[in-house]
Amino acid sequence: MAKGTTSGQLNSSVADLGKILVNLFHPTFELDSIVERVILLIRIPRALTAMICGAGLAACGCALQGVFANPLIGPQIIGVYSGAAFGGALGILISENSFLTLSFSFLFGLVAMILVFVVARVQGYTSRLTLVLAGIVSSSFFLALVSMVKFVADPDDKLPAITYWLMGSFATASYAKIQFVGPLILVALLALIILGYRIDVLNLGDDHAKSLGLKVERNRWSVLGLVTVICAGVVSVAGVVGWVGLVVPHIARNFSKSNHFSLLIVSAFIGAYYMMIIDYLCRGLSSMEIPLGVITALIGAPFFAYLLRRRLGS
């Protein structure tokens, strides 16, 4: 984290970070005010946002892979990403206010999940298959709306902003945004970890879980609700960040016990660290900041292919 907050276009040392943190509580050291302001007002909130989002997305992926008993599932599958993406794009189109973008993104993430709920639930029951299909329906619907927003957006002004936002970035991270989304993501993450035991039971399949006395529908929708809150929160502050939720749980499996309580905790920690590194690469690989979604896919896709082959080999 220290490396992440001190490296970038404006380089400083880890010692500077230490001094800045000491100064927060007791002004002791003389520091370059630009360095101090960059680290305190840009880098630290950015690193915190990356960590919160990384932890949240990794835990979401882990929980969904458990609930669906499918290691190839990531948070995109349930359609929340596309809903939140549409909300964000719409927010940028109609206003300059970044908080409106954030609120719209979060709101439409929830709307997408409600759409999945309405489509997938038939006679009080939802099967895993219909859930995935409803996720695809919801995703396609909102992606079409995103295209529509892009189509009507001003190509000189709004369209580049929307396109860049959709590719994901922590560049606009701030304490105010963390205050808005951070607690929501962290509370949902904690609740998800607590539900780890129930995710283990759901992993056995609907009939088996039901025969062990678990209320399958209630528990599954609870997990999906928490995943929705986290995903919508992440997309609203960072745009669309793919692959993290799919890849990190697979890495975590090498360091954790196999029950989901442990796996979710380890995934969250690795996800936080992973996202910090990704953000560091986004800022540091070239003089221009590379969009987050590009780096997560460039690293995530080959890494996932490697994991897949290793799993098949064993």
Partner: peptide, 22 residues
């Protein structure tokens, strides 16, 4: 399932544990 045998057997307690209990 990736669980070990004891963890697997422990899932039988699901009926008696509240949502927040391990």
């Amino acid at each position: 399932s990736d669980l070990n045998v004891l963890e697997m057997v422990l899932l039988g307690r699901a009926r008696y544990l509240k949502w927040y209990q391990q």
